[in-house]
Write a protein that binds this DNA or RNA. Sequence first.
DNA 1: TACAATGCTGAGTAGTTTAGTCGTGAATCG
DNA 2: CGATTCACGACTAAACTACTCAGCATTGTA
Lengths: 146, 146
Amino acid sequence: MLLSTKGDYGVRALIDLAKHAGEGPVQRSDIARRRQLPESYLDHLLAQLRRDGFVRSTRGPGGGHELTRPAEEITLLSVLECLEGSLAPMVCVADANRGGESLCGQSWVWAEIYDDMRARLAAVTIAELVEHERQHERAIAANYSI
Amino acid sequence: MLLSTKGDYGVRALIDLAKHAGEGPVQRSDIARRRQLPESYLDHLLAQLRRDGFVRSTRGPGGGHELTRPAEEITLLSVLECLEGSLAPMVCVADANRGGESLCGQSWVWAEIYDDMRARLAAVTIAELVEHERQHERAIAANYSI
DNA sequence: TACAATGCTGAGTAGTTTAGTCGTGAATCG
DNA sequence: CGATTCACGACTAAACTACTCAGCATTGTA
Ligand code: FES
Ligand code: FES
């Protein structure tokens, strides 16, 4: 039932990019270090994200990666489906065969769960995750400053 | 993200047992044939279900498997967790470390999704699935009789 | 132009998981 | 006893995961 690490890692990377948006390209090595990801693995994830138009990359010195659009417009759902493929918990509720007859009498439950899940993931943007993180940092800072 | 077939198969088997409850032990081979499951695989699933107290088995001629309690008391969640282990979609939201600090800023989303999912699965019983199946059968029958 | 910094790509890989099969043994009924 | 049924563990092929690595392509700077 577990997602692979790809989705998690990819979202972490995009959060990092969003946080440094407007400061020019961010390098792979910086993302990897800050977010605790294996750099050579992150490489592949960024490639996929680029293919799907989430990021734009520039080579050469001073190069790196940037978001192609504001973080407010990037939903968690779109990122995860880019990196993980379909998030369907059962083959019979995958997007392809939604018209097909219910095979085993429990598929309707999974269909409901899947719809819920997608709705929740579609309602969260990378920008919100960045905001959450900033709030969390402020809370930590406040704790120490008291 | 996909569940393994174990959960699906196991639920199918329990639906079959529930449907024939009160008619004495049901044999593996019958379940396998009716529900289109590989019999020698079903074997392992029934073993697990027995270990966890969902079914009781008797050997010898006329032996087979029966539910230990009414289908109304068996939730989908309990069956799936028996056969699949934890259904957590991310390690960081697994039951073990629910107290642990959020690691990467998106775990709260997954925690919400996981809670939703468990709630939905806990709200459905094997008895309801049997009822659904019976209604479906009646609908088919009605269609043909017209 | 040389060269260093950076990203791009595909091949390879060790370990794990999935979805089973098979064989042997144990219990039970007649 | 012998047929029937479940019980259990060993085994396996195929797929997937989470990587690493080597080599190439592109770009900025001196
Ligand atoms: S076949 Fe899809 S839930 Fe059983
Ligand atoms: S570490 Fe759990 S969602 Fe990222």
